[in-house]
Amino acid sequence: MLKVSGLNAGYGSVNILWDLEFEVKDGEIVAILGSNGAGKTTMVRAVTGMLKPSSGSVQFNGDELSGKNTRYILDAGIVQVPEGRQLFTEMTVLENLEMGAFNRKTKEHFRDNLKKAYGWFPRLEERAKQAAGTLSGGEQQMVAVARALIGEPRLLILDEPSLGLAPNIVDDILKVASDMADHDGISVLLVEQDITKALACADGGYVIENGKIVLHGTAKELSENEHVKKAYLGI
């Protein structure tokens, strides 16, 4: 489904990502793991077209996306939940969700998709008329995920969903992500620094350090890996 190869990207003359290679297959949850400053969010920005890669290819179902704009990539089916949620805090929950259907194709299915999103997160229906900024952190994250779902993703990118949230809420959100992968065939690219939680729900993962991929394998392989244990899990 998504195949990234030889991806280089950075800001100005500073290169951040070095020859990134990874793959996400249909219905799979793939974790991109790494600590602060490893280049995870830069990778998300490069894949979603918010940052133009300096070289390399991003193939999505055979379509070359590298160098395309965000709008095109969204239409192709890659939707992200940006780091730190980034809601429109003065707009209502419903308006935030409506903004998820800003591109033309998904507008027709908005009612159905909204129903589906409320199915995943019933609490949002109760809060539909409330300004998004008045919600709790966990609820805001739900809005962010629901807003992405309204955009009909085939690949959902979750950028650090655990940031600043209580552990049980993170579990809820990850549960929804794995349910979506199982039932709707949506692939998920989970970008996380909470490695224990990420590996608990992912099928496989890649460890990224200083903008390079240093390890990859199945979730089981990674959680048993000595380097991962030592550097990230503190065992």
Partner: peptide, 17 residues
């Protein structure tokens, strides 16, 4: 609506296309 999203959060606006 596009203008209002830009006022609130330019990055988030870019992220939704």
């Amino acid at each position: 609506y596009a203008l209002k999203t830009i006022r609130e959060d330019e990055d988030a606006a870019a992220a939704i296309g």
